[in-house]
Design a protein around this nucleic acid. Structure first.
Length: 339
DNA sequence: GTACTACACTTTCAGAGTTC
DNA sequence: GAACTCTGAAAGTGTAGTAC
């Protein structure tokens, strides 16, 4: 069945497509089109089931009213929440989302950026995987509105909204020291992303600050692609290898969950046998008996700030040179029974 | 194989036709 | 002649069709 176009509505009404366009876009008053004609055209459009052809609208206006959102993993709690809020906020400004994930693989991320470009997205919200810098700089270099979220890399022409990973980790470490824990292990992931590196650096600096000299690094780096079972196995070996360890700091919640499972399997009690803290909160941590202390990222604030920075870029790019905003938000310590 | 044209559909500027 | 009401045409990109 042939799709109803603006032309069909105009033919039925016996007027030009221009007048129909003005009426259906709410500009009848501005163009001094009579109220009678306005009502008649609206009734015809409704009766025929007219829906604007978005491809043609994009072609004419140069805007798709779409934002490409590329995150690390759509399955993750943090990015799932982030996407939900971004979608709600984008909708308020009349934008829809194209949503995908890199799974921390640069080739995949680059392919998706290409797909976003082919779909003529108006702007990009991206959590970059290591190795995507060139493509991202290329997009920004062509004055396309772009904001990095969560992860970022140093550049004068890139806006980003992230959390202060360094100080967030410091807050967690100082909390452990206050509770009397000094033999702390750190479980992280082997990907060289700035937020992961900052957390690791803060862990080391906090120990040095506390002990007055370079402290022993009890750091376990788990390959990103390992299964949950393998993660548990590696964490178990790490705990067994360090019998003096009295607290364990997980760099992300997707490591904290297998960590929690491992501690349970070992029959260890928290915080008596071992204390636990995790960067990035999770529902499980709240529901677990006693609760797991976490460094909570302000997901709502990150999402709202990122989308507002992007919308500002979208609105100002027509009249002026783009402005670049680089924002770091401070996470909060949520004290629970595990420490 | 290459070059050119028409077409898809919508928006919007500039201006034409009508009425008073 | 001014105000009102509406129209014509161009422009945007990718592709199928046509001519040479």
């Amino acid at each position: 069945m042939k799709r109803v176009s603006l032309k069909d509505v105009a033919l039925e009404a016996g007027i030009s497509t221009s007048a129909v366009s003005f009426i259906l876009n709410g500009r009848a008053g501005e163009m001094r089109i009579s109220k009678d004609l306005e009502k008649r055209v609206q009734a015809i459009a409704s009766r025929l089931g007219y829906v604007p052809n978005q491809v043609a609208v994009s072609l004419r206006t140069g805007q798709s009213k779409m934002i490409g959102l590329l995150v690390e993993s759509i399955a993750g709690h943090f990015f799932g929440m982030l996407a939900k809020i971004i979608e709600e906020e984008a909708e308020k400004s009349g934008y829809k989302l194209l949503y995908s994930s890199t799974e921390n693989k640069a080739p995949r991320g680059i392919e998706i950026l290409k797909m976003f470009s082919q779909h003529q997205v108006d702007g990009y919200l991206v959590t970059p995987a290591k190795g995507m810098e060139k493509e991202i700089l290329n997009i920004a270099g062509h004055n396309k509105p772009l904001v990095l979220i969560d992860s970022y890399f140093p550049s004068d022409i890139i806006s980003y909204v992230s959390v202060d990973n360094y100080n967030g980790t410091m807050i967690g470490m100082r909390h452990l020291f206050e509770r009397g824990y000094e033999n702390i292990g750190f479980v992280t992931v082997d990907i060289r992303l700035v937020q992961i590196e900052e957390r690791k650096m803060a862990f080391r600096d906090a120990l040095t600050e506390k002990k007055g000299k370079k402290a022993n690094d009890w750091i376990l780096e788990i390959p990103y692609t390992t299964t949950a079972e393998e993660k548990i196995k590696l964490i178990r070996a790490f705990i067994i290898d360090h019998p003096d360890m009295d607290a364990i700091f997980f760099a992300t919640n997707y490591l904290g969950i297998p960590g929690l499972e491992c501690i349970q399997q070992q029959g260890m009690r928290m915080p008596k046998d071992i204390a636990m803290i995790c960067f990035d909160d999770h529902d499980l941590f709240r529901l677990f008996p006693g609760g797991i202390t976490a460094i909570q990222q302000p997901i709502d604030e990150i999402a709202k700030t990122a989308i507002s920075v992007l919308i500002r870029q979208l609105e100002t790019r027509k009249h002026s040179k783009p402005t670049y905003e680089q924002i770091k938000l401070l996470p909060a310590l949520i004290k629970r029974g595990s420490t």
